[in-house]
């Protein structure tokens, strides 16, 4: 029986409520791994002041949309996809999440300037894990 999206959403809710950060389900021909990013949860609850800091308002976060291992560069390329200070277009590939043999791109939600690559190469990331912090183009360059 294939797992439906609604099942995944329900599973994610259960994880969220129970404080468990990972669940893995294996069936023939299918492995499902859900990872809840507890760091953001902890960060959010531990320092509510940081979330409302004036600078943070300007940033947009590019997030992972699958669970896997983050790579800042393609293994065949020396240079990472992006570096701080680099101007990017909306839709640009900012990094990869390796899941099995698949390399899922982390995509820029907006045009802007890369402020920081937050995730470290090799780190396990999950759905919603912040990967790259972007200063949106409109905020960084009001003339544009």
């Amino acid at each position: 029986m294939p797992i439906e999206t609604t099942d995944i959403a329900r599973l994610a809710q259960i994880l969220e409520n129970s404080g468990v950060d990972t669940i893995e389900i294996e069936e023939p021909g299918l492995t499902l791994k859900l990872v809840v990013d507890t760091r953001s949860r902890i960060a959010a609850s531990a320092s509510p002041a940081a979330a409302t800091a004036p600078v943070a308002d300007h940033f947009v976060m590019a997030k992972a949309d699958v669970a896997g291992h983050f790579r800042a560069a393609h293994p065949w390329q020396d240079k990472p996809f992006v570096a701080p200070g680099q101007r990017i277009e909306a839709g640009a590939t900012l990094g990869l999440v390796k899941i099995g043999l698949l390399y899922a791109p982390v995509v820029a939600p907006t045009a802007g300037i890369v402020d920081a690559v937050i995730a470290e190469t090799g780190a396990m990331v999950g759905y919603g894990t912040p990967i790259v912090r972007i200063l949106p183009l409109a905020a960084s360059d009001p003339l544009n």
């Binding site: 293994p75 590939t93 043999l101 698949l102 390399y103 791109p105």
Partner: peptide
Amino acid sequence: GEFGIEPAGIT
């Protein structure tokens, strides 16, 4: 959808 796969040369 846009994505990649691990090159055979790596695996």
